[in-house]
Amino acid sequence: MASAQATGTTAQHPRAADRTATHGPGPGRARDWAEIQERMLVPLYEAVYDRLEVGPATSVLGLGCRSGLALLLASGRGAQVAGQEPHAELRQLARDRRLRVGAADRTSPATGDVPRTAYSLVTVFEQLPGAAEPGRLVAGAAGLTLVGGHVVLAAWGPPERCESAAVLDVARRRAGRTTARDPFALSSPGGLEDLLLGAGLRPAGSGRVSCPFAYADLDSAVRGLLSTGLYDAAVEFSGGSLVAKELEEALHPYLLPGGAVRMANVFRYVIAERIR
């Protein structure tokens, strides 16, 4: 992505508004995720893989793996990898990377299609912040994990440690009375750990990772953030043009002199061992 000076309003960046016209990721937003947004969480993926010493002896299943970058990184370490992704466009992008990715129910991964019955590591890197039933999602992840294997859950860190919190607030304000999820709902102390109760999982470690969100320009920032799915309810309720315009305004404090955008963020992860 080439860096460009970004000034003005949404009218100067029509792609950002046009690509929000339909609910869900869609072809445009799915590719924006793969080309712009997914790399922002690489420090999280690498920190988890380093801590668990992911390698040739590891079988990894990524739930809600989107276009599959986390799986590619695990495969590069020699692990056997597979994924589940409910959105067809993202699933196809992952398959274009020669990854084995099947469809899945959005809330109950155990009902999806996967190449094998159980894995030594099941990751839930991106699904929890927007999940309607996170407890059910975690129970499904546990059911796909070998006894003695691990489940990894991840979520945003405390909002006061995330500069993107103010930008994400656009999604809340513009969603009206729809069912928009608070991306920081699991960020409070014990939020992720509480999901382990009753799932046959035992806490086995946790950590925080710095994941700056950095974009070449304002247009890329808007497109990348919209591709996360966290703004879908806002787009449906208020319209894509208005949401994109307010996103641009919220991003202005994070514009750098050359036109790039950077926000410091912290993500938290919990590692759990399946004990039964």
Rank of each mutant, 00 (worst) to 15 (best):
245 K>C: 01
145 T>I: 04
68 G>E: 11
55 G>Q: 11
167 V>T: 14
120 S>G: 13
256 L>D: 14
156 W>F: 15
25 P>I: 05
261 V>H: 08
8 G>Y: 10
265 N>L: 06
103 A>I: 00
237 F>Q: 11
215 Y>P: 07
240 G>C: 08
56 P>H: 12
42 V>C: 04
227 S>E: 09
141 A>E: 02
25 P>S: 14
6 A>T: 10
148 G>L: 00
85 E>F: 01
119 Y>G: 06
58 T>Q: 12
228 T>K: 09
88 A>F: 05
156 W>N: 13
95 R>C: 10
11 A>K: 04
46 E>H: 03
253 P>K: 10
239 G>I: 00
107 T>L: 11
258 G>F: 00
132 A>T: 13
211 C>P: 05
108 S>V: 14
160 E>H: 13
28 G>T: 06
197 L>C: 04
97 R>N: 15
228 T>P: 06
80 Q>T: 15
7 T>M: 04
240 G>L: 10
245 K>E: 13
59 S>Q: 06
232 D>F: 01
92 Q>Y: 02
81 V>Y: 07
241 S>D: 12
200 G>H: 08
104 A>G: 09
101 V>G: 01
148 G>T: 00
49 Y>R: 03
116 R>V: 14
134 P>D: 05
270 V>T: 12
232 D>P: 01
164 S>G: 00
223 R>Y: 02
64 G>S: 14
186 L>D: 11
92 Q>G: 02
96 D>H: 12
65 C>G: 12
42 V>Q: 09
251 L>E: 08
54 V>G: 10
110 A>D: 08
63 L>D: 04
259 G>F: 03
194 D>A: 15
109 P>D: 06
51 R>T: 15
124 V>M: 10
210 S>K: 05
133 E>K: 09
193 E>A: 15
129 P>F: 01
243 V>I: 10
264 A>W: 01
79 A>P: 03
152 V>T: 14
194 D>I: 00
212 P>K: 02
70 A>M: 08
65 C>L: 09
112 G>Y: 06
99 L>N: 07
26 G>Y: 07
192 L>R: 03
233 A>T: 09
57 A>L: 12
231 Y>I: 06
96 D>N: 14
272 A>F: 02
248 E>G: 08
39 R>Q: 15
189 P>G: 08
87 H>R: 13
42 V>G: 01
100 R>E: 14
210 S>D: 11
25 P>L: 11
272 A>L: 05
220 S>N: 11
14 P>V: 05
275 I>Q: 02
189 P>L: 08
234 A>L: 07
276 R>T: 13
64 G>A: 15
5 Q>V: 13
50 D>I: 02
74 A>M: 09
27 P>Q: 09
205 G>H: 08
183 P>M: 07
154 A>T: 05
130 G>L: 11
249 E>K: 12
139 A>R: 15
122 V>A: 07
